[in-house]
């Protein structure tokens, strides 16, 4: 029995000539809340489509709860709770009707639990879905995703379009009902502050590849912003992986990986510097929008003279 709820090994997926996933590799441990981060169009929804057996991969291996979604899609869907991005349900159905409609598809469906979740999430059962607010719609989707007691819950940007209060409420519900029960949650989002309080692990997807996969706390500890002189930054560029740099008055503010080692080295050299802790949002931005090339960073920071010397 695998310890992982989801395993991706060198997965590739293209739509015509557009390569969306390029050798994506990741593992999601059972019982963890896993934040899958990426910009719009990074390939998050495609990866989820592959996990649910809605799309066929071009290459690589995928296991979801030890099943291959390409050949065992129905079994995967029975055991997984899935809330799609901007999920559109049948507007003419009343909430209680959609609960009864969905029940036969899941052998483990617990109607009493569905009614309990509907009550907890304040879903108006007698109302037609087309008359629900955006927040109620998302919460109804969550009821449908949870009422069959899934081992794994996949949420694809579930809070998309919700206002900040609603997002907080949604995350509160998520923590109460999922993390409390020890389920594996795969939470895809491009809103970092949304997943930061709930995620145990984070993977950052950029242009179809996982550029970083770490525990949330490790990521916060290892990626930091350091402000230092241009000359010192130029020297540092040869030793550390710089994710991003920006001017900071007369100095330069760089964001580095393996920050504890870099800071230790700077202290040993007696280089004057200032360390700034980053939130997940800033770390994400550094990975997907920052300059990831050490050489390019070094050239820009130290200038051509520094490089030639």
């Amino acid at each position: 029995m695998s310890a992982f709820a989801i395993e991706f090994q060198g997965v590739c997926k293209s739509f015509r000539r557009q390569e969306v996933l390029r050798g994506t590799t990741m593992q999601v441990e059972k019982g963890k809340t896993f934040a899958f981060l990426g910009r719009n169009g990074a390939g998050k929804t495609t990866a989820i489509g592959l996990m649910m057996g809605l799309l066929k991969r071009d290459a690589g291996e995928i296991r979801v709860l030890n099943l291959d979604p390409a050949t065992q899609a129905i079994e995967v869907r029975r055991r997984v709770g899935y809330l799609a991005e901007d999920q559109t349900m049948y507007g003419w159905m009343r909430c209680e009707e959609i609960l009864r409609f969905m029940a036969p598809f899941y052998p483990t469906w617990d109607h009493q639990l569905a009614l309990k979740y509907a009550k907890d999430f304040e879903v108006p059962l007698a109302t037609r879905i087309k008359h629900l607010s955006k927040g109620q719609n998302v919460r109804l989707g969550l009821v449908l995703a949870l009422a069959h007691r899934p081992e794994l819950v996949i949420l694809d940007d579930p809070a998309l379009g919700l206002d900040p209060i609603m997002r907080k409420q949604f995350n509160r519900d998520l923590i109460t009902h999922l993390q409390g029960e020890g389920r594996t949650v795969f939470y895809s989002s491009h809103l970092l502050y949304e997943v930061e309080p709930v995620a145990d692990e984070v993977a950052i997807l950029d242009h179809g590849q996982i550029v970083r996969h770490a525990e949330t706390e490790d990521l916060r500890r290892e990626v930091k912003q350091i402000s230092l002189s241009r000359e010192a930054a130029g020297m540092l560029a040869q030793q550390a992986k710089i994710l991003d740099e920006r001017p900071d008055g007369n100095d330069v503010a760089i964001i580095v990986e393996e920050a504890p080692a870099v800071i230790q080295a700077l202290e040993q050299e007696g280089v004057e510097h200032r360390v700034v802790n980053l939130n997940l949002d800033e770390i994400f931005e550094a990975y997907v929008a920052g300059n990831k090339s050490d050489l390019a960073a070094m050239q820009r920071i130290a200038g051509p003279c520094e490089v030639t010397s």
């Binding site: 809605l54 129905i74 869907r77 029975r78 559109t88 507007g91 969905m102 598809f105 899941y106």
Partner: peptide, 14 residues
């Protein structure tokens, strides 16, 4: 046209 096809296709049935 009602954008419910993804919801339907994600259901655990052929």
């Amino acid at each position: 046209s009602r954008r419910t096809s993804r919801f339907l296709s994600a259901m655990p049935e052929a």
